[in-house]
Amino acid sequence: MKVLVPVKRVIDANVKPRVKADGSGVELANVKMAMNPFCEIAVEEAIRMKEAGKVEEIVAVSIGPEKAQETLRTALAMGADRAILVKTDETVEPLDVAKILKAVAEEEKPELVILGKQAIDDDANQTGQMLAALLGWSQGTFASKVELADGKATVTREVDGGLQVVELKLPAIVTTDLRLNQPRYASLPNIMKAKKKPLDLKEPGDYGVELKTRLKVLKTEEPAGRKAGVKVGSVAELVDKLKNEAGVL
């Protein structure tokens, strides 16, 4: 079985984003970048499937600038077998990402596509669902557990009411939630080996996809600062403030 794992390069989760002076977006210059945390979980899950003997090959793919090679090499160092970079310096929206991944899937013919449920930069949470619709494949979103057996994938999903278990006929799309696993750290020898592995370089045009801008950012601003708290002398005063000042009771 072959698994395709899309990964995205984003601002490191431990770095506080800064808004550009003109409010046109988030400052990306001289900012530490890393693999999207949900994508790390997807890579880890694919590796665990391979270690369990359920998967033979893991192909990582990323869509973005040339520097996204670093993200792909992280995936290779973790345990992916091959990597594909669809190079573009333009902002790629979820629908175009899904169209490119559809073309990659049709070329690579994986039986399973595992990707993060969302990216921490735009929080769109759309790519997996759009990809499933374009391919006409079954999908299991927000997965906290995935089991492969008899040509099917049993996915435990995290939903508002608790957990839901669905059975998917392969090929299928699975999007990962936080509690699916704990990603491993790549070892230094594997990091060194990953630097020497070749990457397949492509462009959106190679897959017949013309990038389109459908959304326009009007303004970006930091959230308002948190107001200072106050001390109250009694429960009655607390209730009074919650009722008459905060208006929550």
Rank of each mutant, 00 (worst) to 15 (best):
V113K: 05
G225S: 15
V159I: 14
A77Y: 00
D123L: 06
E90H: 00
L148A: 03
E245L: 06
M78F: 06
K109Q: 14
N30Q: 13
N36L: 03
A143F: 05
M49I: 02
D96P: 03
L28G: 01
V113I: 14
E90M: 03
L28R: 08
L148S: 04
I11K: 12
V55I: 15
L249Y: 05
L199N: 07
P94C: 02
K152V: 05
N36D: 02
A119T: 03
G64L: 00
A194I: 09
R48L: 11
D122I: 01
L188R: 09
R9A: 02
I63F: 13
V166N: 09
R9W: 02
K102E: 03
S62C: 14
P204M: 12
G25W: 02
T71D: 09
K2E: 14
M78C: 06
E210C: 06
E44H: 04
V26N: 00
T88A: 02
N14I: 08
G116L: 04
I120T: 07
V113H: 06
A124Y: 06
G79K: 11
A194K: 06
E111Q: 15
G79Q: 10
N30P: 09
N125A: 15
K2M: 13
Y185L: 15
Q126C: 00
G205P: 08
D240N: 14
A21D: 12
K193E: 15
D122H: 03
A60F: 08
K102V: 01
L112D: 09
K227H: 13
G79F: 10
L131I: 02
P6Q: 09
L76Q: 00
K219D: 07
K16D: 06
I173S: 00
V5N: 01
L72R: 01
R9S: 03
D160I: 11
N244A: 10
A68G: 07
T71I: 11
D160M: 12
C39N: 12
M192W: 11
M192F: 13
K195L: 10
V174R: 06
V15Y: 08
V86G: 05
V174S: 06
E167L: 09
I63C: 10
L135W: 03
L95N: 00
Q182F: 14
V59I: 15
L4E: 00
E93Q: 01
